[in-house]
């Protein structure tokens, strides 16, 4: 706190490149030209489309899970990377999305496709409402508040008065949907394509958002809240909306996650998941949307790799891998890609 005050009052010294006043993350944008970006996008899309035909079902499932995590991290990125708010509570929104899908499908017989928008809307409202009091909190205080949310979620899901809906500790088992229209795809392949479509739509919405007026307002709030307010930006509304929007993404990811895993239970949605999102966000690159995919892959695969290296010391291996990644790429994959792009351009 104190650094904050002193450097704000005398902001000139704080701005020395020594970087006393480090931002919570260096917003990175790998600056490729839009033409090159489009080509990369199409190539990746083509690869994504043919992959399921080449891979075993289990691997297809893992890729789907990666995309699901990536969507959740995308949501966190909108909040942290573009609005400068910090959250350890996104496992809660993921859980709400997951339970929304499970309850609608299993208790109400609603088709899985329709659970996604509902999960999104519910999470938006919850996120917005949570964002309102959280407005008064910053930094570690916000971390603690969101942390409380994450800690409470599994406990609330286990509460006996809610057991009829949530299934208590047992959770809810979900039926896996088949491919529609008689498409020649098995369930895993279909859910892969379904998640891919949802993911692309959400990704495009996110990129449009951050380049829009709204996106610029969010970033202005991140960079200098007081100046933004004096320029007439309604910071409260924007910050609460950013929270809502971020929760919406994560909630949709939760719903998708529930559908592909076919199961929800309280202990899948602990603080560990929130921390996982945060780690995924940072290794992908805070403020760089494509990084979410790398973050999602990290979240899913690296613990398995660590387990493979050493069963007894898997936690240590995981931690060392994480440290190694931050050493090599202090600003995540985003900074790394940026450096490569700069080099290629001969800067």
């Amino acid at each position: 706190m104190s650094t904050h005050e002193e450097t704000v009052v005398h902001h000139d010294i704080g701005e020395s490149p020594e970087g006393e006043n480090r931002p919570i993350a260096r917003p990175a944008g790998a600056n490729t030209s839009s033409g090159a970006r489009r080509i990369i996008f199409l190539v990746l899309l083509a690869i994504a489309l043919i992959l399921p035909a080449l891979l075993k079902n289990f691997v297809v499932f893992q890729l789907t899970q990666t995309m699901v995590y990536a969507i959740a991290i995308l949501g966190l990125n909108l909040l942290t990377g573009f609005n400068g708010q910090f959250s350890l509570g996104h496992s809660a929104f993921y859980a709400v999305g997951a339970y929304t899908a499970a309850i609608m499908m299993e208790h109400m017989g609603v088709g899985y496709v329709w659970t996604l928008p509902v999960a999104g809307v519910i999470c938006f409202i919850l996120g917005f409402l949570f964002g309102l009091p959280a407005l008064r909190l910053e930094g570690v205080y916000l971390a603690l508040a969101t942390f409380a949310l994450a800690a409470a979620t599994p406990q609330i899901l286990k509460l006996s008065p809610l057991e009829h809906w949530t299934g208590g500790v047992q959770g809810i088992v979900i039926t896996k949907p088949d491919a529609p229209f008689g498409l020649p795809l098995n369930q895993d392949q279909w859910l892969y394509y379904f998640t891919l479509i949802v993911g692309i739509i959400l990704y495009i919405c996110a990129t449009n958002l951050v380049t829009s007026r709204t996106g610029r307002a969010l970033m202005a709030i991140r960079d200098n809240p007081i100046a933004a307010r004096s320029m007439g930006v309604n910071t409260s509304l924007y910050k609460a909306s950013a929270f809502g929007l971020s929760a919406l993404y994560t909630g949709i990811a939760g719903a998708l996650g529930a559908i592909i895993v076919q199961f929800v239970a309280p202990d899948s949605f602990t603080l560990t998941l929130s921390i996982g999102f945060l780690v995924g966000l940072v290794v992908g690159g805070v403020g760089w949307l494509p990084g979410a995919l790398f973050g999602g892959a990290f979240l899913l695969f690296v613990p398995n790799i660590a387990e493979g290296v050493s069963k007894g010391l898997s936690g240590a291996v995981y931690g060392l891998l994480l440290i190694a990644i931050i050493y090599v790429m202090p600003s995540g994959l985003a900074g790394f890609v940026q450096a490569i792009v700069n080099k290629v351009r001969g800067k």
Partner: peptide, 22 residues
């Protein structure tokens, strides 16, 4: 380093005065 320059006897009163306000 800044510390070492200061220890050589260079006292810099920076822009904004650098007061330890607390």
């Amino acid at each position: 380093s800044t510390e070492d320059v200061a220890r050589l006897g260079v006292a810099h009163i920076p822009e904004g005065r650098g007061t330890f306000t607390r």
